[in-house]
Design a protein around this nucleic acid. Structure first.
Lengths: 245, 245
DNA sequence: CGCGTCCTTGAACCGCGTCAAGCCAGGTGG
DNA sequence: CCACCTGGCTTGACGCGGTTCAAGGACGCG
């Protein structure tokens, strides 16, 4: 697919391009952008890949990963609709992280030259993008602190709430709208799958969650929140929300 | 001090304002900015303080901290000349982190209204600031991964190299150009002072460093780098450098 | 039906944080 | 000028949490 999705006709209200570009630039970007579709399990880009432009998620679910020794992965963040991917920059030429589709994912792609011109001609777009990065960085700083101070059980609780914040839950059965392997959940919580397992069964015994096959229902969100409240996360309620609302 | 330091006459080449504002805006900002001096031990701002504008470090040494339960601090980053402090934003009204002077520190302060106008009228300034945040965020993502995978000894090595990267070493005796308490080093490495101590004495026995009172001399930087190289930090060499050079 | 992959649980080891006690240095007051 | 005191530094011993290792179970697919 190429250029089949028009920005001017796009109904995505959160999109930063849609919101902060004037009509002329919306049309210009729309004409020249690409629209790609990735299947569950595809890499959108990998660590060390060259950067050619800016990816914006149109729909779907993405994990952002960084790989350590022995190919041990850490999921450093999650992305969905309206999130930029991989933090495009001009001085760093290659991605330091990888982006992986957890589900069928549609992305818009703006090549570097074009998006640079857009930034130069739409101050509000550049400003909004700066705000986005600035706020993500603030969150990350607080996150660095609490991840270093939480124990395994708290990290798992935090992970579940983070998943809920980004992908949401099904209102009917409270199930998370995403399916991850135990390994992936451990990569996100920052532990090993065995320990993750123990915490999950423990949570189930305490009736905080319910395991339904690969699905997880969050039956007591307040209970989970209380478990980690003492880490000075009163800011938690809006910590992981999309920052430009 | 107020308005005594003129941007137009400033010789600081790294300053983002100096580099990316036109002459007219340099003069305008210069007239209306404030210049503050903080002594060693002063807070520039604390967590939860209201945000009134943007701080830029003119000279000195600053630690950025986040506080957890029982007032346990984590140093989430360090800042020196030309670094913005606290990630000014319009939607978040209060700082999520605190900034603390480790040494006599001079800062320029631009109030929110003024800096907003500057951003709207100087696309290259906004763009450069966006790039700064974008790159800091990338570093932070990789950092989140390796901090979660390193053991105590590696974290201490990483901390020492980070200190060198930001504040540098004295070419004569290789001593770090900054003095921190054991507690602060532990807050930075993400451990307890006792463990930090053990690693430092261990490093000294291995002739990687030398303790000279409160000073620390890095006598074998390559050795320290090798200790953590297996964490896929080949990007380390420029990872913590000031990103806009 | 058989195989493979992931999930799950148990057991053992060990790294590191906690606690406690001694040490050293710098500051203060007699 | 020296004795005392206080706060940070240093080292040792202990115990717990979590990772690792190993084995059995469940599920899906050919």
């Amino acid at each position: 697919m190429n250029g089949t999705f028009s920005c001017t006709e796009c109904t995505l209200k959160q999109c930063i391009v849609k919101r902060f570009c004037n009509a002329k630039w919306q049309a210009l970007l729309s004409e020249n952008k690409n629209h790609f579709v990735y299947q569950k399990g595809d890499y959108i880009f990998r660590e060390q890949d060259r950067i050619f432009g800016l990816y914006m998620v149109y729909s779907g679910k993405v994990k952002i990963v960084s790989t350590g020794e022995n190919h041990k992965e850490k999921i450093v963040s999650l992305a969905t609709t309206a999130y930029p991917l991989g933090h495009w920059g001009t001085s760093v030429q290659t991605y330091l992280v990888g982006a992986f589709a957890l589900d069928e994912t549609h992305v818009c792609f703006f090549d570097s030259d074009m998006i640079y011109e857009a930034f130069m001609n739409n101050p509000k777009l550049t400003f909004a993008m700066m705000m986005f990065y600035s706020q993500e960085l603030q969150k990350m700083e607080v996150r660095e602190r609490y991840l270093s101070q939480m124990n395994a059980c708290e990290k798992v609780a935090e992970m579940l709430l983070y998943l809920k914040e980004i992908f949401g839950t099904n209102p009917e059965d409270q199930c998370l709208n995403v399916i991850l392997s135990r390994q992936e959940m451990a990569d996100l919580a920052g532990g090993c799958p065995e320990q993750l397992m123990r915490e999950l069964t423990d949570f189930e015994n305490k009736q905080l969650i319910e395991k339904k096959g690969k699905q997880i229902a969050l039956t007591n969100i307040e209970g989970l929140t209380e478990m980690i409240a003492h880490h000075n996360l009163d800011i938690y309620s809006n910590l992981w929300k999309y920052p430009l609302n």
